[in-house]
Nucleic acid binder design. Structure first.
Lengths: 184, 184
DNA sequence: GGGCGCATGTAATGAGTTACATGATTGA
DNA sequence: TCAATCATGTAACTCATTACATGCGCCC
């Protein structure tokens, strides 16, 4: 649903053809979505079928024909409905990294520290990258800011976890080997 | 892939049949996964076909037959491989809520504040819920802790955004109405 | 005797991705 | 002339979910 919100939102700023839209998403919105080209084309057609956008074909010079999508009143309404739903709610996100954490105690202390350090490194890289992105227009700055804050929290937590890493030793099931994989 | 890691990890603590496994996931692991019953059964069979787990059927009393899954050496190896991959890496998560934020400027200031407050409320509720969960055994405490930290960061950021909300006014495109939806 | 718990599955559906197909134009 | 850009799409596939089907045992 957030993908449709994204498309409706972009069209709300002004009509556009699919290619331009995809370009814009790839270049400046890769932060808040990973919507793929084919999916965008598909969803645009879907939105057209559902009566939220009007389609017109145009051509410039001898380039291939373009399908230009524009929001109609129903689409406008839908946009604001989805926007309000999105902003007013919060759905808990699942971090795949949590699964690994849940089994951290299965590894020997040395490796635990090494792997968490590696993760911290990756988080640091992502953070550096994000800090290098300039905010652009609209509320995009908010999105960047929020992601930075969240990554910083992630980083800080990893720091703390690393500092306490040896203490987690106590959590290991008794009788566990120090190199469980080498036990073959 | 993290779903398979989860199953392998659970089986690493000891053999189990599907029903028990699902029960455990529903009861104590709903924090780090949303793996569904059918999916678990399916994946267990898949892991068996791929040669990572052995299956045996047993029955207790006159209850339905159970399929008991147990890790074999290949599965053990796979578990540690996936675990290392998971812990050592970090993949950027996409928050659906970011899409809404990216279009925040399309709403009148009053509504922006109201909606962000609502979101903050939801985050607060999730936080309260998480704080009430006791950590249990293994490294599960880490997962809970991390999720609390991240939610706190989310909450704090929303506080900040709310405090600055009127300032975002300047970001709105010139000529925008104050109630864009009512403009019909 | 009726409903819940035990225990496993299948079938249909959906959302999204990957890979592929097409064909003209522009620039090196 | 070779590659990249412009522009759109289809088909096959993966992954996961929902809903449904089954059937015995246990307890009230």
């Amino acid at each position: 649903m957030d993908r449709e919100l994204l498309l409706l939102g972009l069209l709300h700023q002004g009509q556009m053809h699919g290619y331009k839209l995809n370009e814009f998403i790839d270049k400046t919105l890769h932060l808040c979505t990973d919507l793929k080209r084919s999916t965008a084309y598909f969803l645009l057609d879907k939105l057209a079928k559902e009566g939220y956008v009007q389609v017109a074909t145009e051509r410039e010079g001898h380039y291939p024909e373009r399908r230009v999508y524009a929001l109609n009143p129903a689409g406008e309404e839908r946009f604001f409905a989805l926007l309000r739903e999105n902003l007013g709610g919060y759905e808990m996100v699942r971090y795949p990294g949590d699964v690994g954490l849940a089994f951290l105690h299965e590894l020997p202390a040395g490796e635990r520290v090494a792997l968490l350090r590696e993760r911290r490194q990756r988080v640091g890289e992502a953070l550096d990258h994000l800090r290098g992105v300039e905010s652009g227009e609209g509320s995009l700055g908010l999105v960047i800011e929020r992601n930075i804050v969240l990554l910083e929290a992630e980083y800080a937590w990893l720091e703390g976890a690393l500092a306490r890493a040896p203490l987690v030793e106590a959590l290991r099931p008794e009788g566990a080997e120090d190199r469980p994989d080498a036990a073959k």
